[in-house]
Design a protein around this nucleic acid. Structure first.
Lengths: 241, 241
DNA sequence: ATAATAGTGTCTTTTAGACAGTATCCC
DNA sequence: GGGATACTGTCTAAAAGACACTATTAT
């Protein structure tokens, strides 16, 4: 009878064939009233020259989870850490990568455009692509399917949470929030309904400041420190007559 | 300038350190009014003798996705394929498996107890464990955390869908459905609300048969063929005065 | 007939949709 | 003052909660 210590001492991980493992992220933002996502031009094979999701291999020394990998890669590309990052889904199969059987754990992130623009504007291998332009691009691997899944998740959560605030800067107005939500959902929502939920969520506080975006000055809000996202028990349908 | 074909011809996947990759499933059922899950006694190291989730390594020859791996392992243990199987989450890290940096894609499944009992009763290395007993068991790896995540998912979805029907046999009564739902949520629900949602979902049809479970005979229903699960835009809160 | 389980009717409550009305600001 | 944007009040509508009521069956 072998002990676990003996077993581990002689364990050779390379004995078994194993898939290629990567981590990829779909990072959304709002830029010029358009929902956009971060794409990276692939410098190396395979699919060299195609645009793909920011991501890569796990660094077994540095990363203590795939979340850490996602965060490391996103920080490399944007210079900052996104205020929202959640696991999306793991995609796998023998044909999604020409190198062989592969698996990628996809993450889904949101950030304010202004927060990472200083860094992104200095590089040529990363860009914000408006979703409306996606159809005209060659996208690497199965990343288009991953983007579709992320978009679905974003739209779902927008209907029962205030998730889109994470696309806005730290201080924002209700009208800005309404804009992101309407852009994500693709149709108008009742401002009154939005305000009711905004208050009920208890996620936000007034800064005390006002900002002039149009005519009347609008109240500025920020997220309360250390407050979790609030999930509503009912969807915003946004159906209007 | 190297071509992609050249690159692929010389690609050696073993050059890079890679995590240990597995697939695990949380299979729930209802047995004797108790929400239970399938556990397997680990025959080999590591964690030999502990109970863990049914799962294992991906067979790169046979499996064309981690779903296929989950299904293959579940079928080995239960003799049948579960009517509900969805991806839960991927768990990863350097310490969750003593062999090293590991990653497991966890799946979440439901099945009727009667459908797999013929097979499970013949083996000694697999058992249904009522959730209430879980605290008294030594569970392998981080499988307890995976079970917690699955349970959370099950409870969430029970509030906005008819998911628990997949814990019932092909033909069932409304009272049986109410029972599973109340067991999962841990509190009673309004039968009237349940019936309204049951009808509105358009997922079911009457078999025309009745069954005597208690006093008055109850109508039998089955799932309509090829119908997708219906998601409600509002949660069943189940709060009662 | 009674008890027990199955199923219906209908009133209340909650929260979103609709939309008119008021407030503030710049010109 | 007029037009534009910000914000409020309040009615309606949809769907869940509450619970009393009727229906069917075994004993």
């Amino acid at each position: 009878m072998q002990s676990e210590a003996d077993y581990l001492a002689h364990y050779d991980p390379s004995r078994f064939p194993t898939p290629i493992v990567t981590v990829d992220s779909v990072l959304f933002t709002l830029y010029q009233q358009q929902l956009s996502l971060l794409l990276v031009k692939r410098a190396n094979h395979p699919q060299q020259g195609y645009w793909g999701l920011p991501g890569g291999f796990i660094d077994l020394e540095q990363d203590d989870s795939t979340r850490a990998t996602a965060l490391r890669k996103l920080t490399e590309k944007t210079g900052v850490t996104p205020p929202w990052l959640e696991q999306l889904e793991t995609f796998s199969g023998p044909h999604r990568d020409p190198r062989g059987w592969s698996l990628t754990t996809a993450w889904f992130a949101l950030i304010a455009w202004a927060d990472c623009q200083p860094h992104i504007s200095t590089v040529t291998d990363a860009q914000w692509l408006p979703l409306s332009q996606l159809a005209h691009y060659d996208i690497a691997f199965d990343h288009r399917a991953i983007i579709d899944a992320a978009l679905l998740r974003l739209r779902q959560k927008t209907m029962y949470s205030m998730l889109p605030v994470y696309c806005l800067p730290a201080e924002f107005t209700l009208s800005q929030l309404q804009d992101v939500i309407e852009t994500i959902l693709g149709h108008p929502v009742q401002r009154k309904s939005l305000i009711r939920r905004f208050d009920a969520s208890e996620m936000f506080e007034e800064t005390g400041e006002f900002i002039a975006t149009g005519a009347r000055k609008a109240r500025l809000y920020r997220r309360k420190a250390g407050v979790d996202i609030h999930l509503f028990s009912r969807n915003l349908t946004g159906e209007m007559t």
